[in-house]
Design a binder for these strands. Sequence first.
DNA 1: TGGTTATATGAACGGGCGTTCATTTCAATC
DNA 2: GATTGAAATGAACGCCCGTTCATATAACCA
Lengths: 195, 195
Amino acid sequence: MARTSGSHSDITGPRLRDAAQRLFAQHGYAAVSMRQIAAEVGVQAGALYNYIPDKQGLLFNLMKAHLDDLLAAWQAEPKGETPLEALESFTRFHIRFHLDRPDAVFIAYMELRNLEPANFAVIEGLRKRYETVLEDILRAGKDAGVFTLPDTKLATLAVIAMLTGVTTWYRDTGRLSRDRVERIYWNMVRKAVGA
Amino acid sequence: MARTSGSHSDITGPRLRDAAQRLFAQHGYAAVSMRQIAAEVGVQAGALYNYIPDKQGLLFNLMKAHLDDLLAAWQAEPKGETPLEALESFTRFHIRFHLDRPDAVFIAYMELRNLEPANFAVIEGLRKRYETVLEDILRAGKDAGVFTLPDTKLATLAVIAMLTGVTTWYRDTGRLSRDRVERIYWNMVRKAVGA
DNA sequence: TGGTTATATGAACGGGCGTTCATTTCAATC
DNA sequence: GATTGAAATGAACGCCCGTTCATATAACCA
């Protein structure tokens, strides 16, 4: 034991965020203490405050980093030419990205109510920007007469809920591969939008 | 102030559950203290223990009551004759039931990780029983050649996720009536299952 | 090699936690 | 009107919380 002092800044920082992400996802923000996180990192609780302003700031940083990642990754994604291609691209991207980060996803959806109002507004804005990505695809498809949608806004929310739901049951050791899951969901999404 | 003592058993019990449900939904189980609940009820914290074994038991009772309600309500629902009618019935029922109980729904989905293992097993069992209701409908429709499903199990999970997602955005003061929402989602569900 | 600085310790702060229990209060019964 | 018992009080229990800070240490740079 007894990690002695010295300079481990570049190690402790990431380890802190990793531990916090894992513990918050498992037990919930309010149920995890700074001392638990510190123990996981192998450090005393006081040392954490060299890296974060406070517990709330830690949660906010984790959520913001996740959503920034999400939006940046979509920017870097090949999006296809037609609305149908774009929707397939989005569907597969969303599933893949979310399955790769189960803890971050869990926190982003479950801990919104533990954000202070100012922090919540920032996160909510990023979430809406991502929602708009899908909404724009669906509207373009509807305008082009490729999709049949009773309500574009509701279809957006319905598709995202359906896709994000994958994270609640998917296990790497399960019956289906990721690619198979992507395919099955794409099949259902395509039919749901009438294409 | 100062609610004095006396016999309020039949009043305090329900009020305790109401307050706990509201507060747990708003702030999360771990973030709400017994003293906050007691204050909401208008009583000292110690008095709550005349009605519940402990905080964990309170959470468990709330979740169990919700799922018992859900299964009982479905039993009492007219289910239609054909798989298509049954699916419409289920879709509308699920949306209606969940929109009527936003707090209970929120707790049932968010606080699973705060249940002790034994309690979790009970709740999980009830949740799976409800899932099976939809799975049976989908399988019947698939066997009858009415539904086209790439994977019955995944379709079950996808549809439930999609429908339950309504609770995250629906507001009574919003653009659409409940009936309109039911209709729009039924349209999307029907198409998603290829009927 | 010695001084500087980043990084950690560990104790302390005030306060809130879930739960228990002796005691008090009051409505209902005889 | 006295007795009874359910239902509440309010203080106390030991414990953990997030955060701060004086102090110690080890790596880096002159």
